[in-house]
Amino acid sequence: MATILVACSVFVGIGFVADFLLGGHQYKQGDWLINTLNQPVRRGPMGSTLIWLSDQMGVGLLEITILVQLGLYLILPITYWRLARRADFAPSALLLALSPAMYFLLWAAVAGAAARKEIFAIAALLLIGLYIVERRSWLLVSATVLLAVGAWGHLVNVMVLPIAAAVLAMPIVLQASHLREPAEVRGFARLDMAALVFLATNGGVATLYAIVYSSVPSVSAICAPLLERGLGPEICDGAISWLTLNSAKGAPLVADRYSSYSHLTRSFLMMFFGFLPLGYLLARLPKEAFQAPLTRGRAIAIIAALSLPILPLYLVAEDWERWIAFHVFCATVFFLLSLHLDLIRLSPRLERQIL
């Protein structure tokens, strides 16, 4: 497993090096450099912070942006590897995690997706999963910081809060079902509740800010600080250019693109093959593999419910493959924790049947 995770990380790292050599990518770095130095705009506080760090540290703006992105990305394979090991992966579960359904490979296949801002939510959910497994408070604190910061960069990091709450609730559901002793599970402790209340408050303020300052008449004021710091004008041709559109204007563009049969077909195929390994595994598992209160039907319902919070993004954002990858990721985290919490048991006999 470690070899494949390292290989995927190297592949993504090469992409970051290419971005640096080309002077920055209009989406991969451009989205992060939306700023409020000249006027308030949604997603701007994060870019303003990166500009401030660059100025204070005397490091180039592109360099500091890529270093932050790379640091965030490295959380993913390290945390996932630890979570998978603690789940005592059986062979079929290992095949599932390393299949094209897993987000590492999906992100490698989607140009630029490894550097988009849902990386905050991805890393935070993995840290929360590891927090449930290892019961270390700093893991939840770290996840809370990531989601709080990420909320000011992209609202997907606010939409993910119900998913984070659902993940935190898994142990308490077991305790309520009298299937675990209190000492053996991690319920909604004070830190859990404090983190969720803080994130809900922070997310509400970030959402209100994004609604009030949803668009700008021209991106020249956003681009000016970037050009002054040595970046080329092409950095403004991607994510920054979308700032002239609010959700009401962006939705028709999305509808027009996906009225094309080819785009719809590609998205359907990504969804189908993305969920195929997990769907196959859940279909092949016999009834006795699911432990109360989890059943096959409930597992499918939970996976479907985990997809609901970010569905609005399909209406206003063109890159559906990112949201599909996120659905598959959430399902995989649920599967990992179900193994760890003994909600799904894979005996050697079941392994042979599945494989």
Score class of each variant (00 low, 15 high):
A183K: 13
L140F: 04
G297A: 12
A164D: 05
Y131W: 15
L226R: 11
L269T: 07
L341C: 00
G23A: 11
P293H: 09
I354S: 01
F120T: 08
A325Q: 05
L95K: 13
A18E: 14
A124E: 12
Q175I: 14
M46P: 03
V160C: 07
A148I: 07
M270R: 12
A283C: 09
G60E: 07
I122K: 05
M193A: 15
P225L: 03
P309T: 05
P286Y: 05
I302S: 04
S214W: 08
L126Y: 13
A148V: 03
T295Q: 04
S267H: 04
G112M: 09
A7N: 06
H327F: 12
A255Y: 02
L196N: 06
Y103Q: 12
V173Q: 07
V59L: 13
F20K: 09
L22C: 10
E288Q: 14
V12H: 11
T207S: 13
F268R: 06
R229V: 06
R284D: 03
A317I: 03
P162T: 04
V6I: 15
V212N: 07
I64T: 10
V68L: 13
L168D: 06
L276A: 15
S241W: 00
A221M: 13
F272P: 00
D342T: 08
D256H: 11
H178M: 12
N35R: 09
L130A: 04
W52V: 04
W81L: 10
A301N: 12
A84V: 01
H178F: 11
S347M: 04
I235A: 03
E318G: 07
T49E: 02
P77S: 03
A123C: 12
L62E: 02
L61C: 03
Q69M: 09
P217W: 02
W81Y: 12
Y261I: 10
A248P: 00
T201L: 15
A251V: 00
A221P: 12
E118H: 10
L308W: 06
T265P: 00
S9E: 02
R296A: 08
T3H: 01
V41M: 02
A151D: 06
L339M: 10
V316K: 08
V254Q: 02
S347G: 05
M102N: 15
A301V: 11
A251Q: 11
P309D: 07
I119G: 14
D342A: 14
I128A: 14
G58I: 10
D19C: 13
T36I: 07
M271V: 10
N38M: 08
A176N: 12
V41S: 10
L139P: 00
F104D: 08
P162C: 05
W81G: 00
I354F: 15
A124T: 11
L346N: 04
L94R: 13
A224K: 14
L96A: 09
L50R: 04
A109L: 10
M270L: 15
I75K: 00
D88H: 15
S247G: 00
I4W: 09
A183L: 12
S218P: 07
R180N: 06
C330P: 02
A292I: 09
F89P: 00
S260A: 12
N202W: 11
V333F: 02
V6N: 01
L106T: 13
S260Q: 13
W242E: 08
L130K: 00
I222R: 03
G187F: 02
G58C: 09
S259T: 03
A299Y: 06
S214L: 03
G129L: 01
G297W: 13
A108V: 15
A221T: 15
F16R: 14
L191D: 10
R82N: 09
L313I: 07
